[in-house]
Design a binder for these strands. Structure first.
Lengths: 198, 198
DNA sequence: GTCTATACGACGATAGAC
DNA sequence: GTCTATCGTCGTATAGAC
């Protein structure tokens, strides 16, 4: 566990910068927060923090990756429908990170963007996991049939993402509500406690 | 109809710039398209085009406003569910404008942003109009009950917006399909031809 | 490997000449 | 109404101290 290899401290410092950056974007918002401001919060010069990242967009991508990991750690690892609802509710406390997510997703539409692979993978995994949960629920009769899980999954993901756009501009919108409404439409009923998943 | 008043040419020129800017963003994409490039396409210097707009973000807002107006003009004015489906399908041909829309929506989460009022109004009007169509459809039994129109409207809007994020990163996604799937879930059936609306 | 200092080009904004 | 010139800030690149 002690220092081993020359990269040991480097990784720690890199993680520290990431953590600080996450906090800065959460507190001060994404728009108008320059790398120099982030660097100042880390007590470093701007090239100082860029020693650990390829580019600004690389740093932003890592921030979103860490946000996902933090959320995954806060809840039980395998994403379930109730935990998805919780995560959506939690994001209401960090509008700056939602802003960062949406902004970077738009920029990442370019195939050559550093975050493109991240978003592609993220959406793919989320859709697959979601589809699994929905398939289980359908098989157990806890959810309406009518649409196959592979079609329901992107739909549910779209609701989760899309309601964010409305919420950003009108904070009185309840994001959890919208997601829950979709499942009410599906006549979803929770799994029995002790069941493997949901 | 002829020139009347000193502002006559100004408005025409302004509209011309807007039209050209819309085209530039549609063709070349949003990211990496500077005001100087737009200006060059207009045969003007950058301060030249800024004579007609308060700021870069003001110009971008007007571009999105014109995009909405163009879409509204292409279809019958009162938004119906089938025409909403068409508009979503059409946006697949202009990824640069989708990128612009999402990017600006994120930035406009700031209350002081020039586009904030535009998005607030846009979402409000869309939700209200959608809710009206859904209410009619429910009353005529052409759509499942279970959720009131005021809750269904933001949900449908979220699907339309959210599927864009997935599509931007994976162009094989069919945006119209996702929107149609929601209405399949609602067991929606089209209004009779000759009916007032849908 | 870690970090500072410095310089560079491009951006949006703006002042002032014409 | 439109230009040139300039400003401050951004992200980036590099040289070199330690």
């Amino acid at each position: 566990m002690a220092k081993r290899g020359p990269y040991r401290k480097g990784e720690a410092k890199r993680a520290e910068i990431l953590e600080k950056a996450l906090e800065v974007f959460a507190v001060e918002g994404y728009r108008g927060t320059s790398l120099r401001k982030v660097a100042a919060q880390c007590g470093l010069s701007m090239p100082g923090i860029m020693h650990y990242f390829d580019s600004r967009e690389d740093l932003l991508t890592q921030v979103l990756k860490k946000r996902d990991e933090d959320a995954r750690a806060r809840h039980h690892d395998p994403l379930t429908l109730p935990s998805a609802l919780e995560i959506i509710g939690e994001s209401q406390h960090t509008p700056g990170l939602v802003e960062l997510f949406v902004s970077l997703a738009a920029a990442a539409s370019d195939t050559g963007h550093p975050a493109h692979a991240f978003f592609e993978e993220r959406y793919r995994v989320f859709r697959e996991t979601l589809a699994q949960r929905l398939e289980e629920a359908q098989r157990q009769g806890r959810i309406r049939a009518g649409l196959p899980p592979e079609r329901l999954a992107p739909l549910a993901l779209a609701v989760a993402d899309g309601i964010q756009l409305q919420w950003m501009v009108d904070r009185s919108i309840d994001m959890s509500q919208a997601f829950a409404d979709l499942f009410q439409l599906l006549e979803w009923v929770p799994a029995e406690t002790g069941e493997p998943s949901d």
